[in-house]
Amino acid sequence: MKITIDGKSATVPERTSIGGLLLKKGISGQVAIVKVNGRARPETYVINEGEKVEIIKVVFGG
């Protein structure tokens, strides 16, 4: 299915979860906040066709 990740079109398998997407991208869930269609979602959230995913990296320091 087609989704948008950080403004770019991407194809992912059906029923991809946020946790799965992060895993595939090699990003630890400890250092990422993910928004779907502008709303923060947990790693267990299953992404639907056409949804806009935004990955915010949690940077060290602050």
Binding site: S17, G19, G20, L23, E43, T44, V46
Partner: peptide
């Protein structure tokens, strides 16, 4: 490793 996938 499936991120606890379930239906949203």
């Amino acid at each position: 490793v499936n991120g606890g996938a379930s239906s949203s």
